[in-house]
Computed example of a mutant assay.
Amino acid sequence: MSPKQQRGEATADLLLDTALAVYARGGERGFTVNAVTAASGVSFGSLYHHFGSFDGLAAALYLRCVDQLCDPVVAAVTRSRTARTGIRALVRAYLDFTRDHRDVALFLHGSAYSSYLAAHAKEVMAAKDAKFAPIGDWLRPRVASGEVAALPPHLIEILVMGPVAETAHRWLSSTYEVDLDEAARVLPDRIWRALRSD
C-alpha cells in the first residue's frame, strides 16, 4: 500500500472513530457533519472525498459497528452443538457486547431507523444479511430435525432478538433500571422455551 493510500485509510478511520465518539457524546441531535469535522480536524472536502456524504459516513460507521457486533455473536452461536446452547450463547453474547462496547451498541440501536441511513438502506440490509447468514445456516438443520419449532425465519428472529434488543435498548437509554446480569441469567432459557418444539 502506498503512503498516500495509508494516509487515506488513516483519515477514514479517524472520521469513523470521531463520528462514533460524537454520537456517544451528543446522541442523534449532536451527530452532525459540523460536529464530526470540528472534532476530527478533517475538512468537509476530505469527509466527502472518503464517504461521498455525511449519510455515507454514517452508513460506513453503522456497517463497521455491525461487523464488531456480529463477529462475537456469530462465533458464539456457530460453535454451539445444540440449538439450546446456541440460542443461549447468542443472548449472552449480545448482552455482553452491549455492556463491553456501549458506544457501538448505542450507535447501532439509535441509528437503525434513522434518516441518515435511509439513502443506504439496501446496502446496509444486504451487508447485515450477509454477516448474520451463518446463524441462519446453523439454525436450518436444527429446525429441520425438529429441535427448533418450525416457524418462519423472521418469526424466529423476532422471538430471539425482540427481547434481547429491547433489553439492550432500555439499558442503553439509562431511563429504565435494567440489570444486564439479571437479563443474561433469565432471558436465555425463557427465549429458548419460546423456540423449542413442543
Rank of each mutant, 00 (worst) to 15 (best):
M1K: 12
P3G: 07
K4T: 15
Q5G: 10
Q5D: 05
Q6R: 15
Q6G: 08
R7F: 05
G8H: 09
E9V: 08
A10N: 04
A12V: 02
L16M: 06
D17T: 01
T18S: 08
T18H: 07
L20F: 06
A21C: 05
Y23H: 15
R25T: 14
R25N: 14
R25Y: 00
R29A: 14
T32R: 15
N34F: 13
A35W: 00
A35M: 00
A39T: 00
A39N: 00
S43N: 05
G45S: 13
G52Y: 01
G56R: 06
G56N: 03
L57A: 15
A58L: 01
A59I: 14
A60M: 05
L61A: 04
R64S: 14
Q68Y: 10
C70H: 05
V77L: 14
V77D: 15
R79D: 09
S80Q: 14
S80G: 11
T82F: 07
G86M: 08
R88V: 09
A93Y: 05
A93R: 13
L95N: 07
D96F: 00
D100H: 03
D103G: 01
V104W: 04
V104P: 02
V104F: 06
L106P: 00
L106W: 03
L106E: 08
F107L: 11
L108H: 03
H109Y: 06
G110W: 12
Y113E: 04
Y116Q: 13
Y116P: 03
L117I: 11
A118W: 09
M125W: 00
M125K: 01
K128Y: 02
K131Y: 14
K131I: 08
K131G: 13
F132W: 10
P134D: 06
W138H: 04
L139T: 15
R142I: 07
A144T: 03
S145L: 10
G146C: 11
L151G: 14
E157T: 10
I158R: 12
L159H: 05
M161V: 05
V164P: 11
T167K: 09
T167Q: 11
H169M: 12
H169Y: 11
R170T: 11
L172Q: 02
S173Q: 02
T175I: 08
T175C: 00
Y176L: 02
E177F: 11
D181A: 05
D181G: 09
A184V: 14
R185E: 07
V186D: 03
L187N: 01
P188Y: 02
R190D: 00
R190E: 08
I191K: 06
W192L: 12
A194R: 04
D198F: 04
